[in-house]
Amino acid sequence: MLRYILKRSLSLLVSLLIASVVIFAAVEVVPGDPASYMLGMNAQPDTLAALRDELGLNGSLIQRYLGWVGGMLQGDFGVSYTYRTPVAGMVADRLAVSLPLAIYALALSTAIAFPAGIWAAARRGRLGDTMVMGATQLGVAVPNFWFAMLMVLVFAIGLRWFPAGGFAGWDKGLWAGLHSLTLPAIALALPQAAILTRVMRSALIDALSEDYIRTARAKGLTRGQALRRHALRNALIPVLTIIGMQFSFLLAGAIIIENVFYLPGLGRLIFQAISARDLIVVESVVMILVFGVIVVNFAVDLAYAAVDPRLRARE
């Protein structure tokens, strides 16, 4: 086990190193000068030079890469070119929107998918199952930004039940915050719920064909009872794996939905930073996201290996 951990740790470090090089290179080759973006069409060359100097844009690429990585190792993610505030603080602010939104969307999708998946599995092949499966096919196929547009039209402009967008802020209370995140969370949750329902259903159906279920049925449990008492627990592993994947997707993948609802989230921060050529923000935020996914994968691998010795032997 120790050897396995060492080996995986080494590959984790190599992955992070490669990721940092790739991100830095990909961002630095983007054409466009942050200083001329900030100073506009009437800027004079000496003004531009003064600003570039202050932003630290005049160093060599290698110097700047080392400075960036060195800073991150000490927990310093740099200072935004345009906003002139530390990137770490900006990320924290945006996470206050993105994290609750991701959790909200995930909660909604789970709240839909669990009952729908169980219901469909229990009625496998019957009308209810067909209807649920048809609905999930639609849910997967709907572009979520289009769905979001239609929801804004109906629920914000038409019925005025929800704000058309924007974020009320947590200082206005939990309810106000959740209220402004509801439509975006539904838009994000819909396709995820459809996927999760399908996974839930097929995991349950697989579990139902296992021997222990037959034993349970033989003991006199109804199909529904067997499903709830025994199959559900075993179906949770694939379902939780999918939920984990969806969470990291929701955190960074909400860019388009954040734009539709003008939410000040992490995705929109990256989007704006790219168009303003706020390179340091793009680099650091993408690195944080990639770091998160890589480390979670690493932890999951270790957890699996701890549970299942065959995985270690394989390596």
């Binding site: 983007v30 960074a252 993948g253 995705g267 989007f271 790219i274 993408v286 990639v290 996914v293």
Partner: peptide, 10 residues
């Protein structure tokens, strides 16, 4: 591990 939309934008 890379956020696909961000890479597309880049």
């Amino acid at each position: 591990a890379f956020p696909s939309l961000v890479i597309a934008i880049l």
